[in-house]
Computed example of a mutant assay.
Amino acid sequence: MAAINPYLNFEGKTEEAFNFYKSVFGGEFQVIQRFKDMPDGDKMSAEDGNKIMHVSLPIGDGNVLMGTDTLESMGQKLNMGNNFSISVDTDSEAESDQIFNALVAGGEVVMPLEKTFWGAYFGMLTDRFGIQWLVNFDYGKEK
């Protein structure tokens, strides 16, 4: 079954925030990726390229705090209320499809479910109540 974790958005402060959370909760970053590391990342400004595309910090038993920087150059704007999402990690593509399609009913697809360059099946949506969701299946974790 799916696991649910918080996903936080910051305006250029993700690295600072997550170093703070790491000092509070301990542990090590599971993943830290910068925008310059994505395909065509070398085409963005050095400032944007150095910002955090994705970071994850395991906390406790099975919980993961994740985050990203928003980039105005990519059409993203941070407002209170859109500074977090709920991330659902699934056990299969089929479970991703089922959960994504159920959540988006009456809502809006932000990014359709698709295979990504980081090795996942991933999509984003806003449900009919205005809550932002990320649905993710990491290949290699089939059960």
Rank of each mutant, 00 (worst) to 15 (best):
A105V: 08
K77A: 12
D69W: 04
F84M: 15
E11I: 00
A120E: 02
G26E: 10
H54T: 02
G12I: 06
K43H: 12
E47V: 12
K51S: 11
N5M: 07
V24Q: 07
G60V: 11
I131R: 05
S73P: 00
G140F: 03
Y21Q: 11
E142K: 14
S73V: 09
F117K: 03
K51Q: 13
W118L: 03
A46R: 14
F122M: 00
K43W: 07
T68W: 00
L65S: 15
L103V: 08
G130N: 14
M111A: 07
I59R: 11
T90R: 03
P39I: 05
G41A: 10
A17I: 06
I99E: 05
L65T: 15
V109T: 15
D37V: 06
L78G: 03
E11G: 07
K13M: 11
A2W: 06
G81R: 09
T90L: 01
G67L: 07
A3G: 01
A17G: 09
P58K: 13
V64M: 11
K77S: 14
N19F: 06
F137T: 02
G119N: 02
G49N: 08
L103G: 03
E72G: 14
K77W: 02
N101A: 08
G41E: 03
A105P: 00
F10E: 09
V55S: 02
G67H: 08
D48A: 13
K43G: 10
S92N: 03
M111Y: 01
I131Q: 13
T14F: 03
A105N: 09
D69K: 04
I99H: 06
A120P: 00
Q30V: 03
D48T: 09
P39T: 08
N19M: 08
M124S: 02
F10A: 09
E95L: 12
S73F: 03
I86S: 11
N136E: 04
L134C: 02
D89C: 07
N5E: 09
E11S: 15
F20A: 15
Q33N: 12
E16A: 15
G62H: 13
F29A: 13
S23V: 04
P112V: 08
T68N: 08
T70R: 10
P6M: 10
N63Y: 12
V88Q: 05
R128I: 01
A120G: 05
F122L: 01
D138H: 10
S92Q: 04
E142Q: 12
E15Y: 11
T70E: 02
F84P: 00
L71Y: 08
N82E: 04
T68A: 13
E11M: 06
N79T: 14
A94Y: 05
N19E: 12
M66K: 05
S85Y: 01
N5R: 09
N136P: 00
P112L: 05
G130R: 11
V110Q: 08
K22D: 11
G41N: 07
P58L: 09
G130P: 01
G27V: 11
K143P: 01
T68G: 03
F25A: 13
I32K: 12
G107S: 12
Q76N: 08
S87E: 06
D69P: 00
K22R: 15
F18Q: 10
D97Y: 06
Q132W: 02
F129I: 08
N5D: 13
E93P: 02
K36W: 02
G12V: 07
